[in-house]
Every structure is written in structure tokens, then in C-alpha cells.
Nucleic acid binder design. Structure first.
Lengths: 249, 249
DNA sequence: TAGAATTGAATGATTATGATTGATTTTGAT
DNA sequence: ATCAAAATCAATCATAATCATTCAATTCTA
């Protein structure tokens, strides 16, 4: 496997679960411990992640006690994120589906509408949702160990019992010809069904995901509105031919 | 489990409960007392929490009862004895149901049989199960905020799809005339169904639960084998008339 | 093919963990 | 208030896990 490819997959895995253990990477990427360590220290040097004893985590700017000024400016910048915008779409009384993964997780902090109900397949979302005082339902199923997302037949069966006003999912790639894609077929199936059950459907995808493709097809572009950030994407029109694209800047 | 993950979870638990006892953390996080102490003193140094005798509290707490030493540490070890025995009943290849709650949680540390599958309705069990490398399924449903257990119609529907070699549940009271009881009707319904789906069924109950009754009936005594500790219980025969009682000493 | 880059294994150093010890604190009974 | 028992605590140690470094083998590239 190519070095860059390995690096990408490491970052991708971090997106899904916000921490990885060295041993998980060794196993999943079929590389030696030495190589993984080299990858991690290099990625750390590039500021893409933070190493910890036994693994790594997504890089996040000093969470340590931000000053009032920093807080204010951060709040402001946060208003412009994909997650914040997505959350602002949720209205009082809505019932929404929230996909597993860090992207959707970021929405939770901004979910301020009253009387909403959230259904999710992300085990890690639950505590945050409860902390917000949000009425929370979880679909059941097999627990995918690393990401702690529910997938499989059990998840599908449960999901079929719900309908959503709005569905929010994350993807690994989106492409005019190949649609929305993600590596794990089982996860793709859950995402696809969640889209079907939703009245309004949204895909959260930053600009790096455009023209990328992963192994498993979730659905065509036309099945959801794309929410993305303000970075210039070449050939955005190709996507707009298929569906509405909202760019948050 | 990564150190930071443990720290995160400690803070999370603290946020939910305002205070945590060391022993609770040891049990929940499957780490030694030494490690937990180190975690706490480190987190205290970072100003994230305040240690107090027997546990910790959130930092910005007012002057409140600085004592959370529990009289129940003997009860704790008794519970643990029951849990260890219960876990020893699980054999290679078994598919078992594990009820939410602390009693069943303690079983996890002792679940050493290979190739087992665990189905649970306890959100907090999942991390511990995955850390043990156990294949884990969760029934879906409404998340009951305080206990973080899955209940309701969704939970019931999911549960109906599974069959178990062995079912383990906790109860709040057991009585020869009134059977197994628990306060919440919704939880009672889930427990009852779990018992129905199980081939062999066990109720874990320390001696303090005997002759107690709570609001909601789960099932008659005859529907499960009772696992209890070695304390002498007056009138144990009344229970043995209805079902098998295993006393672990 | 030669040179450079990448990889995997081996090494000692560093760090995290769990058990043990004796000191300290809390509790409950006088 | 005082005391004894129980629980918690801090400190220490041995063990286990992780880490940085080195070096030889392999792969890639010019």
C-alpha cells in the first residue's frame, strides 16, 4: 500500500471514531508497527492529528480553557461550520435521524430547537444528546467495534419502524456519476435506508470528499441535499445538475 | 482503553451524576483502583474535577456533603461474587442476554468464555464488552435518561428478533407471592420479554432484595433461577418452593 | 544497475498499569 | 469526646505495554 494511501486511511478512520489505537491500525492497514508509528509522527508533524500513548486522536486546537475572547471568536467561527448550519435546519417538533460519525456528532452542540426527537445509530452520540436534554432513540443491531455504530440486519429492521422529518448523514465520497459512497457495505445499507425514511435528506460533506469514491454505494446524488463548506470546488456544477448544493461560508 | 478515553468517560460520568465513587469507576471502566486514582489526581491537577474522599465531584460544585462513602462496600463485593458465578455459567459459543444495570455489568469482567455473543439493553455495558473483544448486539429503543437503558416499543420489537441460550437480569425485589418486581413498568416489560426469549434464565439478586417488592411485576418466581449470595435469608424455603435458588458463598 | 526511499525487526528507554504496603481518614459505637 | 474497625489514600514496586532509535533488507526510481 502506498504511503499517502495509508495516511489517508488513517485520517479517515479518525474521522469515524476520533481515536484509533496503534494495534487497530496495524491490523487494518496490514503494516508493521514501525511503519504505523512513522505515519503517525509524520501526520502529527503536519498538524493533522495528535499522538497519544497507544494511539492517536483528531487534532483539535488547545481545548484548554479558552479565554473569553477566544471563546467568542470560536463561537463565531463555529456558526459557519457545516454542522452548525445543518443543526439550524432542525425546527421545533422535528424528528430527525442523525448518522454515526464525528461530522454528525458536531451537530449535537448546535441542536437548540425545542421538542425535537433524535434517532441515531451512533452509540457515542447518545450521552451528548441526553446532556442536551434531547429525547433520544437508538436503532439496535450489531455494534461495529471501532466506531461503535449500529449496523446489520437488526439495525435495518429497527430503522424501518421510523420516519424522519429530516435525515442527516455523512459520507466518504460523492461523485456525479457514482453518487454517495462509503467503505463499509453494511454502513452504506443503513445510510441508504435512513435516507429513504427521511422527508428532507441532507448529506454533510466538506470539500475534500468531492469526486472521491469509496467501495460501497449509498445512493444517487439526487436523493439528498448536499451541505458543504466554502472552499472552491472545481466542477461544482456537475453536482448541482443532480441535486441542490448548499455552500456554507 | 486509551488513557484519554478513560479520562473522557470519567468526566462524562461526572457530568451525569455530579459525583462518582472510585469503586463505581473501577467497575464501569474495567480498570484497577490504582489507575483510577492516578486518573483522578491528574484530572484534578488539570482543574477538571475535584477529588474527595471516596470519589470525585465536578469542580464548580458548591460546598456540599463532602462524604460519599457508602455503607454498601460489603454489598458490592457480594454482588461481585454473584456476578462472577453467573458469568461462569456462560459457555463457549453461547448467546446471552445481559440486562442493563450494575449487577449485570459486573458480569462482564468475568465473561471469559470464547466465541460468545452478548445482546444487551444497557448502553454502558457496550464499551466494556467491546474492550473484552466480545461480539455485541444492542436492542434499540427509547433511551431512558437516568439509567441509560433502552426501553419502549422499539426495544421490545428488537428483542423479539433474538433468542438466547441464557438470560441474565437484575431485579429490585423478589417475593414468593408477588414474583420479581422493578419500579419502572417499561423496564419490567423488557425484562419479562428477555426472560421469555431465553432458554435458561437467571435472576441476579443479593439477599437484600428478598421479600422486597417494587411497583411493576416482571414475572413469577418460577420463570427464572435465582442467584444470590451466602447471607442467610429467613424463609428461603418459600422461594425454593417456586424455583431453584443457587446460593453462592 | 546504483542510489534513494521505505519498510520491518530488534534494542533499550520510557510510560502505563496493577498489586502491595503502611499511613490517613471516616464511621459507628461507646 | 474517644476509640476501634473499616475504608480510603499515597507511595512504592514489579510487570507489561508502548515508544524512539537504529540497522539491515527490501522496494522504488532514476
Amino acid at each position: 500500500m502506498l504511503t499517502v494511501e495509508r495516511h489517508q486511511r488513517i485520517l479517515q478512520l479518525l474521522q469515524e471514531a476520533k481515536t484509533v489505537k496503534i494495534h487497530e491500525l496495524v491490523e487494518m492497514l496490514q503494516a508493521s508497527e514501525s511503519t504505523i508509528r512513522r505515519d503517525l509522527s509524520q501526520l502529527e508533524k503536519e498538524g493533522k492529528l495528535k499522538r497519544l500513548h497507544g494511539g492517536a486522536t483528531l487534532f483539535q486546537r488547545k481545548r484548554e480553557e479558552p479565554s473569553l475572547v477566544e471563546k467568542a471568536s470560536r463561537k463565531l467561527s463555529e456558526k459557519n461550520t457545516i454542522a452548525a448550519y445543518a443543526a439550524s435546519l432542525v425546527e421545533r417538533g422535528d424528528c430527525i435521524y442523525l448518522d454515526a460519525g464525528t461530522t454528525a456528532h458536531q451537530m449535537i452542540a448546535h441542536l437548540d430547537a425545542a421538542d425535537i426527537i433524535v434517532v441515531t445509530n451512533g452509540l457515542n452520540h447518545v450521552k451528548a444528546l441526553l446532556d442536551k436534554g434531547i429525547e433520544t432513540y437508538v436503532i439496535g443491531g450489531y455494534v461495529k467495534p471501532r466506531t461503535e455504530a449500529f449496523i446489520g440486519q437488526g439495525a435495518m429492521n429497527s430503522l424501518r419502524h421510523y420516519r424522519f422529518d429530516k435525515t442527516f448523514i455523512g459520507v466518504n465520497g460523492l461523485h456525479p456519476a457514482y453518487g454517495y459512497t462509503t467503505p463499509d457495505p453494511e454502513e452504506a445499507a443503513v445510510k441508504a435506508l435512513a435516507l429513504e425514511q427521511g422527508q428532507e435528506t441532507y448529506v454533510l460533506a466538506d470539500h475534500t470528499k468531492f469526486y472521491e469514491t469509496a467501495f460501497s454505494l449509498i445512493a444517487d446524488l439526487s436523493t439528498a441535499v448536499i451541505l458543504t463548506d466554502g472552499e472552491v470546488v472545481e466542477g461544482l456544477e456537475d453536482f448541482q445538475e443532480h441535486t441542490k448544493v448548499v455552500t456554507i461560508k
